[in-house]
């Protein structure tokens, strides 16, 4: 079955974003395919390469990076939300003259059309947060 995930929760508040990552891992383990994970609103902060979490807590970024790099899962941050949360990739950082990129390269910054397509192509859409 083809799944798409919509994540609207910040990694810094509650466990919802972590649950989304674990759900994605479980889908892959069960042999389902994931069309795309789309991060909206505060969910964009899941793509932060610069956030630092306490060492005795689960790491928030690493499960997503593993899903992208080892399982080929496409991770897309909503560009409008990402800019507002200071989540910039290299080209956006240059465009807005900011000192550095803050988005991990495993994530793509793109528009809402990517969510529209992800919904249209999926058998199941599962939303986390909101």
């Amino acid at each position: 079955m083809i799944y798409s995930l919509l994540v609207m929760s910040s990694p810094a508040s509650g466990h919802c974003a972590m649950t989304a990552a674990r759900f994605a891992q479980a889908l892959v383990a069960r042999g389902h395919s994931i069309k795309r994970v789309f991060f909206l609103d505060a969910g964009c902060c899941n793509g932060s390469a610069t956030a630092v979490f306490p060492q005795d807590e689960d790491q928030r970024l690493e499960p997503w990076v593993t899903l992208a790099e080892q399982n080929g899962v496409e991770l897309v941050l909503c560009i409008a939300s990402a800019l507002k949360h200071g989540m910039l990739d290299d080209s956006e950082a240059r465009r807005y003259d900011r000192p550095a990129a803050t988005v991990h390269p495993a994530f793509i910054v793109s528009g809402l059309g990517q969510l529209v397509e992800a919904v249209a192509c999926a058998d199941r859409l599962v939303t986390f947060g909101g």
Binding site: M8, L40, D41, C78, A80, S81, K84, G111, L112, G113, L115, V116, E117, V119, A120, G130
Partner: peptide, 19 residues
């Protein structure tokens, strides 16, 4: 909440893609 605006933006984006 910023999600109020996001939901309407998504509706407009979906319509733009003929959904």
């Amino acid at each position: 909440s910023s999600l109020a605006r996001a939901s309407i933006d998504l509706a407009l984006a979906a319509a733009a893609f003929d959904q």
